[in-house]
Computed example of a mutant assay.
Amino acid sequence: MAQIEDYSPFLIGIKLLPGLPLDSIKKEMKKLLTNVDDYIVTPEGRGDIGITIGLPIEPIGLKENVEIKLNLQTESFNIIGDEPEKVNLIFEEIHDLLPQLPYDMDSLVSFYEIIAGVSVKTDSEPPKDILNNSFNVDLTSITENINPNISLAGIRISSLPTNLDQNDFFDLLVEPKTGSYSNRFLVQLRYQTNDKENITNFEVESTISQIINALEEK
């Protein structure tokens, strides 16, 4: 039976439309949060330097170990934590503040997304065996000619977008977890939608458990 151990991390993103004045939006959101209970608002000038191309990720605030950041590279508010329920609650609070910004919602938000890396423990067979027993893939010609240890090392479940502008998108990758090959999966999930309620109602634990349990039962 699959057991979800931890999320590293769990992120809900509010993707903004391109070309908006992000510095102004950041300052306005900080002002709003100063009037909301239990938020620790990050002072100006304390940004995380982006590793890839040097663009800053601006911390906005913190509540109950859930971080709110403005990513200037992806142009999105990111709500990040280790517990999906808490992240979802903070996401709701941040989303409720958006109409107080000096922008119409239709000219502010592009889409919403969930991004998560999830460690899942299995007590049945090793993950590699579960994956290979779940799918009838004949790899004989490859194992004989290249390497006898080659096997199915992961599966990807995805609603591939039909065009580049499509925001309703689900993608999930299941593979053995590095360092815990004998009893753990790493599940990497990404879900995009134009509908905020789809994010609120998305049951991440149930979705992942159903998929892993289905693989175990094959």
Score class of each variant (00 low, 15 high):
Thr34Cys: 12
Tyr191Val: 04
Leu72Ala: 04
Tyr103Asp: 08
Ile4Thr: 02
Glu58Ile: 14
Leu89Cys: 11
Phe185Ile: 00
Tyr7Ala: 01
Ile94Leu: 10
Asp195Arg: 10
Ser182Asp: 12
Pro102Thr: 03
Pro126Ser: 02
Arg190Gln: 09
Glu93Ser: 11
Asn35Gly: 11
Glu216Ser: 02
Gly54Ala: 09
Ile114Val: 09
Ser107Asp: 15
Ser76Asp: 12
Pro127Leu: 02
Asn167Tyr: 13
Phe202Glu: 00
Pro9Ser: 05
Leu139Ser: 03
Ala116His: 00
Val87Asp: 05
Glu197Gly: 04
Asp96His: 12
Thr34Ser: 13
Leu152Lys: 03
Gln3Val: 13
Asn35Ser: 14
Asp195Cys: 02
Leu152Ser: 01
Lys196Tyr: 04
Pro102Ser: 11
Ala214Trp: 09
Asp37Asn: 14
Asn183Phe: 00
Leu62Phe: 14
Phe77Tyr: 13
Gln192Ile: 06
Asn145Ala: 14
Phe135Gly: 02
Glu64Gly: 10
Tyr181Arg: 10
Leu108Lys: 06
Gln73Lys: 14
Leu17Val: 08
Ser180Ala: 08
Leu33Gln: 05
Ile199Gln: 00
Thr140Trp: 06
Asn71Tyr: 05
Leu22Lys: 02
Ile57Pro: 07
Val87Ala: 12
Ser119Lys: 14
Thr143His: 05
Asn71Phe: 08
Thr178His: 04
Ser141Asn: 10
Ile14Ser: 00
Phe135Arg: 03
Ser158Leu: 09
Gln188Leu: 11
Val174Thr: 01
Ser8Trp: 05
Ile115Ser: 13
Ser180Phe: 15
Ile4Val: 08
Lys218Phe: 15
Asp195Tyr: 05
Leu97His: 03
Glu75Leu: 10
Ile157Leu: 14
Ile208Ala: 03
Lys63Val: 06
Lys27Cys: 06
Asn201Trp: 00
Gly179Phe: 01
Pro59Gln: 03
Thr34Glu: 15
Ile115Asp: 11
Pro59Phe: 00
Glu175Lys: 15
Leu172Pro: 00
Glu67Asp: 12
Lys26Trp: 07
Pro99Val: 06
Pro99Asp: 08
Thr52Val: 14
Glu175Cys: 03
Leu97Gln: 10
Ile49His: 11
Phe185Val: 00
Ile114Trp: 02
Glu58Gly: 03
Leu189Cys: 04
Asn198His: 09
Ile146Tyr: 05
